[in-house]
Design a protein around this nucleic acid. Structure first.
Lengths: 339, 339
DNA sequence: AACACAAGCTAAATCGTTTTAGCAATTGTT
DNA sequence: AACAATTGCTAAAACGATTTAGCTTGTGTT
């Protein structure tokens, strides 16, 4: 099982043929190259008995193909991205590709470096969660025509394939649900960023509020992405005490989790004092004393479409696919009026 | 940035020297091979201006080294392992290695297949979380002398490097803490498995109980590893209603999380009705209405030692290191008598 | 009998590096 | 002046696979 040394030459020597013939047979091209049945059979058997396994490095060098793809996320230890990674990895494996995973920590320099590093390692394509400020880098990737699929986040004016949530719909769903429960003074906690998916989520909320004639009750607070807790604390305090908000939507899982820590420490009761909606369910939401309503992303679909799109693009240079997949609202006690 | 076509030959042609010379210079061996300073400088400059990046595939083929290592965990979407993966990945990157990650789902056949697949992809070593029943496979790995480091789990009679928690100490800490709080009828929820790390955790608890003269109050329940919830429910019901347990230790994060779901559904109050200790902290524990005391593993250290040990072993064939790293008890409300 | 053609194989180039052996020109030694 | 040693470079092999061109046989056709 563990030899790793037997090459095509060794087989050739033993069977008494040329390495070329062995290669042909082992690649199923015996007929095409009119190899005698007898000889072909002996080659196959010898290969098996010697536990031959092709040297993929050599294969790659010759073919120029590495069967490698890169997955660049912000942090693989973030459960959202590790769930994505798991699915991408499984699907890639089925398609005979290997995934190289890296984390950027939302940092542009890191992202640039990782794109270079992965490119250097010979990946044939990239699935990428672009960080704030990476537009030029992504534009460059687009112009270089390197197979790239954006995941979770996208740029509306860069014509690259992408696999994302329908972010507008997500907050629309959340806001409508809160309105339906009779909440009016609904606040939103967002990141302080130009990233389009966040802007879309904000729009979904703002438009829905406006359409309900509650434009005056719109409160959007933006907090620092790398160290959100202090900002969240301050925002919540103001929203609750000064603005008398009766509900709050957190735009990401990280924001919601930090928000719950704050609300607990502030001794604010959910949903009695304020209703809460989060993003991306997890055990913490479900086990909370008042289980948290959340927007559920179709993670499996997002991941699968990303890798499938990438592979199609690698194989067919003009393939493109821009997906905005539908969210679902998982309603729990944290957003119900008379729970 | 995105060219990928310029080779050592191209540089050689432009500078007007041989490819060999270019290789020597670019590998910092100019002095060693007595290359003229003038020429060397021109080579370096030309390489830079052409954005030369070495073809790693070719390099690997030539050197027989792939700079690849495998990381086989049970599930990369499990936060414990994704945290490990993040650290391994970062450290490996520093050491100029690339990590290939796979998930076994606690399944032996998968594990065997993945070991083969990764081996085939040319990894120079493996970090591996062995699943139940994998002893023969691991023994085979040991005998083949393939660089392997076991992570999180180990086999006492296989002389392989490993980086694990001090499991006995972990439950000893937990049990002593509960005893110190005056709890006597302490139960344990474990997996139904032969895996040594679980057996060690059970021993830590049993011995501590025995030493306290409470051998008679020892309750160990073993549940199915793949679908634990029904077993946990039944065990908890019995422990609480029939055995009048006043505390319960869950041996893993998955067990604790499932246990909390059960206790919530059963309307059992923590710690009033029963005290709880879990394994591996997370937001769900901290945000719980009564924050959960847990055994904290030194994840960073475990991961870092695993990859460092592997790389040392790859470079030095007789290197070996068996680590059992110290746990820490994070005490929260769920295990305090008079909270 | 002469030639075409198919069958069954091999030699050699190639992918991009690294490294060994060795060549030519210059300098140093006596 | 003859020879040795040093300097600065190149040619070629090697890693393990794939593929193209081409070489022998043998068979069939006329």
């Amino acid at each position: 099982m563990m030899d790793k040394k037997v090459s095509i030459k060794d087989i050739a020597k033993i069977v008494g043929v040329s390495p070329a013939l062995v290669s042909m047979v082992l690649n199923g091209k015996a007929e095409q190259y009119r190899i005698g049945e007898e000889v072909a059979k002996r080659v196959v058997e010898t290969a098996k008995s010697m536990h031959y396994a092709p040297n993929l490095i050599a294969k790659n060098l010759r073919s120029g193909k590495t069967q490698l793809v890169g997955l660049i996320v912000t942090d693989i230890s973030n459960p959202f991205y590790s769930a994505i990674a798991r699915i991408v990895e499984d699907r890639a494996s089925e398609l005979n590709y290997t995934v190289l995973i890296s984390s950027t920590d939302e940092n542009l320099k890191n992202t640039e470096r990782l794109v270079d590093v992965l490119h250097n390692k010979g990946v044939e394509g990239l699935i990428l969660v672009p960080c704030d400020g990476s537009k030029e880098l992504i534009q460059g990737l687009y112009e270089s025509d390197f197979p790239t699929v954006l995941l979770d986040r996208y740029f509306p004016d860069i014509d690259l394939s992408s696999s994302c949530l329908d972010n507008y719909k997500a907050t629309e769903l959340a806001t409508e649900h809160l309105l339906g429960q009779g909440y009016k003074n609904i606040a939103l906690i967002a990141y302080n960023t130009e990233m389009q998916h966040i802007l879309d989520r904000i729009s979904g909320y703002e438009e829905t509020m406006k359409n309900a004639g509650l434009g005056a009750y719109t409160h959007v607070r933006k907090v620092d992405i790398l160290n959100p807790k202090p900002d969240i604390w301050k925002a919540l305090e103001e929203l609750i005490n000064k603005e008398h908000a009766d509900a709050v939507i957190f735009l990401t899982n990280m924001l919601a989790t930090n928000g719950l820590y704050c609300l607990n420490e502030m001794n604010v009761k959910i949903p009695e004092d304020i209703a809460v909606i989060g993003f991306n369910g997890n055990d913490a939401f479900n086990l909370f004393y008042s289980p948290i309503t959340y927007v559920k992303q179709p993670i499996e679909q997002i991941a699968k479409e990303a890798i499938d799109t990438l592979i199609k693009r690698i194989k067919k240079s003009n393939y493109k696919s821009k997906l905005f997949l539908g969210p679902e609202l998982v309603i729990q006690k944290s957003s119900l009026r008379d729970a």
